[in-house]
Each structure stands twice: as C-alpha cells, then as structure tokens.
Amino acid sequence: MSPTTAEARAVEAANQAFYDAVETSDLDALEAIVLTGPLAESVSVVHPGWPVLRGRREVLRSYALIMASTEYIQFFLTDVEVAVDGDTALVTCTENILTGGPAEEDGSAGSLVGGLVVATNVFRRTPEGWRLWVHHGSPVLADDEESDDGPGAGPGAAGDPDE
C-alpha cells in the first residue's frame, strides 16, 4: 500500500468517525475528531440552511443542539472522494440522510424522512491523527427529473432554444 493510499484511508476513517459520532449522538467522540490547538478558532461548519459558525466551541455547541433535538439520524455516504495534500485533506461526499421523529406510543419507529446533502469536509493532520477542520453541507434541491445537462440547464438557460 502506497503512502498516499494509506493517508487517504486514514482520512476516510476519520471522516466516517465524524459521521458515526453524529449518528450515535456521541459528543465526546465528536469532540475527539474536531480540530484543537492553534487552529481551533478557525474550525467552521455550515449546516444546511444555517449561517457559517466559526470556532471549535460554537461548532461543537451546534452539534450538541442538533443531537439533543434529533431522535434518529443515519448517514449513508456515497460518492466519497478523498484528496490529500501534505497536512490537509479534502473529502467530498453525498450524505443520504434518514431522520426520524419520536417513537410512536406503541413503541414503533416514528415517521422517517430522507434527504440529500452534498458535503465538503476538510481535515488537518495532527500528532493525534486527522482532525475535522471544516464541514460544509449543502442540501440537494434538484429533483429526479432534472436534465442531465446539469444545474441551470432547464428552460431559459443560456443557449436554450426555447428562450
């Protein structure tokens, strides 16, 4: 296994640890994966629909709020791509998210809702391993009927003969 492949696998494992911590509402595990030290104040997150949050403390607070108000969440990651350059790594992926409300009175699962978010996660190499520096999630708003030509390729797009 080449060093690049080993590094990419280590980054992918750190990325998965991040999602596992959120899924299990394990704030201690999340704190362990989020960057500390001199760059702690530059840690940032953009949750879908939220403004940019900066600083390790504010980022962890946001996750604590999400964990406290989310009964169930599960991530199925697809399209995972990892790039490593020195002490910085970039992960892009699609978060196929399944969330649920409180359990029904009979103990059965509450209603489940699915959604798609594209995410960019930036990791920084530390003596303790790869740590999350930036997470940016953006909801996928396009439906299945969107043209294969990409965003903005519908009627009225530049060069569209139907203009």
Rank of each mutant, 00 (worst) to 15 (best):
Val117Ile: 15
Val118Asn: 11
Thr120Phe: 02
Thr120His: 09
Thr120Tyr: 03
Thr120Gly: 02
Asn121Phe: 02
Asn121Trp: 01
Phe123Thr: 01
Arg124Trp: 00
Arg125Met: 03
Arg125Ile: 01
Pro127Ser: 14
Pro127Cys: 06
Trp130Met: 02
Arg131Lys: 15
Arg131Glu: 04
Arg131Val: 02
Leu132Tyr: 01
Val134Met: 07
His136Trp: 12
Gly137Thr: 13
Ser138Gly: 09
Pro139Ile: 05
Val140Cys: 08
Val140Met: 08
Val140Glu: 05
Leu141Ala: 07
Leu141Ser: 05
Leu141Asp: 02
Ala142Phe: 07
Ala142Asn: 05
Asp143Val: 07
Asp143Met: 06
Asp143Ser: 15
Asp144Ala: 15
Glu145Pro: 00
Glu145Gln: 11
Glu146Thr: 04
Glu146Ser: 06
Glu146Pro: 00
Glu146Gly: 01
Glu146His: 06
Ser147Pro: 06
Ser147Phe: 07
Ser147Ile: 08
Ser147Tyr: 05
Asp148Asn: 10
Asp148Ser: 14
Asp149Met: 10
Gly150His: 05
Gly150Leu: 06
Pro151Gln: 07
Pro151His: 09
Pro151Cys: 02
Gly152Tyr: 14
Gly152Trp: 14
Ala153Pro: 06
Ala153Arg: 12
Ala153Glu: 10
Gly154Ser: 14
Pro155His: 08
Pro155Gly: 04
Pro155Cys: 06
